[in-house]
Write a protein that binds this DNA or RNA. Structure first.
Lengths: 125, 125
DNA sequence: AACCTGTCTTGACGTTCGTCTAAGCAGACG
DNA sequence: CGTCTGCTTAGACGAACGTCAAGACAGGTT
């Protein structure tokens, strides 16, 4: 619980954000909100949401930038910038293997976010 | 943002759209990404994340602005602006009853977001 | 009626974001 | 070695965001 071994971690939300009780169950403390909001913000762009999905759903669990870039009408640097945003949010992890750079999803944070948004399936409305 | 200049009046998928397959299971289409990204963006601010939680976890399912505002070191108009952002994202609903305005969470969209972020617990890593 | 309280809107300010072009680095290959 | 390709970084610019002070509106109270 100290820290996840990772190449370039900028966010250390495992420190003060023990996995979250659902948003609708207990009021989220300011510290937890400050730690998790950047992750939501990173997903708050259509391009990054698609990038995240393409990476997380890729075969073998990783996607090459060379496969991601041509899927959008954006320049290479712009895609690289979005990937950096996802990386700094702790949502993905990058690794260079030879010529290409591969991105892999980090399920831990995704699970935290999903748990936070979970609402009980109460049929009442 | 991307090259979208649409007015984005209100999200329509809050009605009862079939809940999206998880992000990590199938690649999110551009349309879905464009529709859901604003919701994530709305949650991408610590203040709004706390507001969302305070509303969703409130007794009776609704919270009065008069209870929300003093919880932050921000002015009334600023809180009102954040609430408007949550409202326009389809995450909450407002209703005026007499002097006070009450906000209530919309579980449908929250469930969609949670489902999108769901990752299988058997994911290696 | 006039007043007061609570909330929202407006207009403005500085900061951050998304995008681009141009330049820099890291490997691969002739 | 030189050069080419793939990806990132640096700098710039317009748009959007977060915040506030001031004004406007709705509803209750006197």
């Amino acid at each position: 619980m100290s820290k996840q071994a990772a190449p370039l971690p900028r966010l250390d939300l495992t420190a003060d954000a023990p996995c979250c009780p659902p948003l609708a169950q207990r009021r989220v403390p300011a510290g937890t909100a400050a730690a998790l909001a950047p992750a939501f913000k990173a997903l708050g762009d259509p391009v990054r949401l698609q990038l995240m999905s393409m990476i997380a759903s890729a075969d073998g669990g990783e996607a090459c930038v060379c496969d991601l870039t041509p899927a959008f009408d954006l320049t290479g640097p712009t895609i690289s910038h979005h990937l950096k945003t996802l990386r700094e949010a702790g949502l993905v992890d990058a690794e260079r293997r030879g010529t290409w750079v591969y991105y892999r999803a980090r399920p831990a944070l995704l699970r935290q976010l999903a748990a936070l948004l979970t609402v009980e399936p109460t049929a009442a409305s």
